[in-house]
Simulated scan of single mutants.
Amino acid sequence: MPTKVLTVCLGNYCRSPFAQLALSRRGGPRLAVRSAGLISKWQDKPAHPSMVEAARRLGFDLSAHRGRHITLEMLGWADTVLAMDASVLATLRAVFGPQHDSKLCLYLDGRDVPDPIGEDDAAFFDCAVMIEAGTALHGGGLIT
């Protein structure tokens, strides 16, 4: 049975959707990966166009993505929940309580994946490169 991973960012608009693709590719059938956001602003909307382009440049197709708002059911489904930054991690802990704390961690062990919203296309590409590199570096032992 595959390890179930949920990637979470603020809006499920750029970072966590790309992390879902990158982890899925790296982990293959050993990982079942989903993504979600803390806010519902981009619910059912496509990923940010600059992240779609950054993903394309790295050989990924993010065009089918539609935003999802995190639910308690999603959290319960996951074996591991990877927050894209410390603020997202703190919100997950505050909203969902200590019973889920053991499955919550940062996507990059000990550091944030900066949110590129409001930045230029280069920032989105740099973010995507960081996320893709993180699939090999993730300290949680999900991918060996």
Score class of each variant (00 low, 15 high):
47 A>M: 08
27 G>C: 01
117 I>F: 09
18 F>E: 02
137 L>D: 09
115 D>R: 05
138 H>D: 10
103 K>M: 06
8 V>N: 07
102 S>A: 14
84 M>L: 15
44 D>P: 02
125 F>R: 02
126 D>M: 06
29 P>Y: 00
44 D>M: 05
101 D>E: 15
37 G>L: 14
77 W>P: 02
36 A>C: 11
127 C>R: 03
144 T>W: 05
135 T>P: 03
2 P>N: 06
31 L>P: 01
31 L>T: 03
5 V>A: 03
98 P>T: 08
68 R>I: 01
77 W>E: 06
61 D>P: 05
120 D>Q: 04
68 R>L: 07
72 L>T: 15
123 A>R: 06
93 R>Q: 15
69 H>G: 05
34 R>I: 04
98 P>A: 11
64 A>Q: 15
126 D>T: 10
126 D>S: 14
105 C>E: 13
122 A>V: 14
104 L>M: 13
3 T>P: 01
41 K>S: 10
40 S>T: 04
11 G>E: 11
102 S>P: 03
38 L>T: 13
85 D>P: 05
63 S>K: 11
133 A>S: 13
8 V>W: 12
94 A>E: 15
61 D>A: 07
114 P>W: 11
135 T>D: 01
110 G>P: 04
2 P>L: 10
5 V>F: 03
117 I>G: 00
82 L>P: 01
80 T>G: 00
98 P>L: 03
41 K>A: 10
134 G>C: 00
90 A>H: 15
72 L>P: 08
105 C>R: 14
